[in-house]
Design a protein around this nucleic acid. Structure first.
Lengths: 141, 141
DNA sequence: TGAGCAACTGCAAGTGATTTGCAATTGATC
DNA sequence: GATCAATTGCAAATCACTTGCAGTTGCTCA
């Protein structure tokens, strides 16, 4: 935690109580969270929703959090580990939104191949898997 | 084209002029198009924007078009070929939005692996590559 | 310790993509 | 050509997210 606040301070950003609260929630919930969810988890009145959006934006730019897109129109964020670039993927249940983190990613090689073949540089990718989890398979609907 | 209208008719959907116009535009532009773009391409007053949204929704449900998400907040649609499921990926320039279609997809095997390992069924995936195209590399900014 | 100030925050209004209620219109069927 | 459900246009409503602005609050430095 102090490492994070250190990074903030180094860029002359302030350690405010909303920011601490947001980081704390992200640390306690090692899952992709939407701004709205962070807001709901947080004790009433501790911080404005707009501030959560602004903070997440800042933390993303500082590479302290990573943004994920599950295609439902709401961005989700996860804390990035020390020395990690946060790159990984998920398997998401389309019924209940349960999320499984996926470690392996063998697409780096394909990135370079695509970059060379199409004269692109700085190629990255976004990949998410979707399906129906075992619990939801048993439920009707 | 008649194959498409046939599919519409079979589900007791009507072949209306807005729908024909939309399908025609998608056929002429084999690239992912946003609703807004389809609206702009279409001769003024030929069809309402809301109708485009509704039509694309319907066509997607009927698997006549496929939805893609480039992470910029606007959905894009492509016509799906006959007998094809439309599954493929793109390499998108983050500066000028140029799009390269990517045929190969070797993730089907990984899908089954993930499904088995996590007890999911009906696993699919969304994958897009992003980078900077050669033209944009030469421009400042 | 406290003055000074840039960085922050809350609030409310604004965006931009997409959806929806409803009354008028229009294909498809007979 | 009548009939009727499917469609459309229009305007208002959503939803996630952003922004202007005036009032706060961490940090720095004397």
């Amino acid at each position: 935690m102090s490492a994070l606040t250190g990074r903030l301070r180094r860029q002359s950003r302030k350690i405010t109580s909303p920011r601490q609260a947001i980081l704390e929630i992200l640390r306690k919930h090692p899952h992709p969270l939407m701004s709205k969810e962070i807001f709901a988890i947080m004790p009433k009145g501790q911080c404005n929703l707009a501030t959560i959006y602004r903070t997440l934006h800042l933390l993303e730019k500082m590479e302290i959090v990573k943004r994920f897109d599950f295609g439902d129109g709401a961005a989700r964020f996860e804390l990035v580990g020390e020395g990690d670039d946060g790159h990984h993927h998920h398997l998401v249940c389309t019924r209940c939104a349960a999320v499984v983190e996926i470690e392996e990613c063998f697409l780096r090689e394909m990135e370079s191949r695509l970059a060379a073949a199409n004269r692109f540089i700085a190629v990255t990718h976004k990949l998410e898997f979707f399906g129906i989890c075992s619990r939801c398979q048993k439920r009707p609907g």
